[in-house]
């Protein structure tokens, strides 16, 4: 059984985000934590308010980019940061709940805002018994 975790990987100008999990859903949720960690330490973000996110795409990779871009959009328009995620995927459609709180620049000290998830180094695959979901985000 894969241990759910996230990590960043290097891109020359920006940042790669990678989620690893026992299921595709878990990998997507972990990658969302990696996305948040580009901005701030997710531990500092209280999971107070829930937001529902839905996306649809012709394949897993585009769905993954859509998922991260939906979070970027919600962060920008609601002025929120998130720290907990529940993801469900069925028939090319994703339904998720993201919990977080309103951005507090003094407390969260956001390092950077994310412009969008790119298709560079984009991958959703099963590797060595675990699901990996990754891409580079433009900051």
């Amino acid at each position: 059984m894969a241990t759910a975790r996230w990590e960043h990987f290097a891109h020359e100008a920006d940042m790669g985000v990678r989620g690893i999990g026992a299921t595709k859903e878990e990998a997507f949720a972990q990658a969302a934590l990696a996305l948040m960690a580009v901005i701030t330490d997710p531990v500092t973000v209280a999971a107070n308010e829930a937001v529902t996110i839905e996306c649809q795409a012709p394949d897993d990779e585009l769905l993954f980019a859509d998922w991260l871009n939906a979070l970027v959009y919600e962060m920008a328009t609601r002025k929120m940061l998130f720290s907990r995620f529940e993801v469900r995927i069925a028939n090319g459609a994703l339904t998720a709940t993201a919990w977080g709180e309103r951005t507090d620049p003094a407390r969260h000290r956001p390092a950077v805002e994310i412009k969008g998830a790119t298709y560079t180094a984009l991958k959703v695959a099963r590797e060595n018994g675990a699901w990996v979901a990754q891409t580079v985000v433009d900051v």
Partner: peptide, 17 residues
């Protein structure tokens, strides 16, 4: 700002298709 980022994001997907 956000407007350009969102346009880039949306058309990237549409242009793949």
């Amino acid at each position: 700002r956000g407007l350009g980022h969102q346009i880039g994001t949306e058309f990237l997907k549409r242009m793949v298709i």
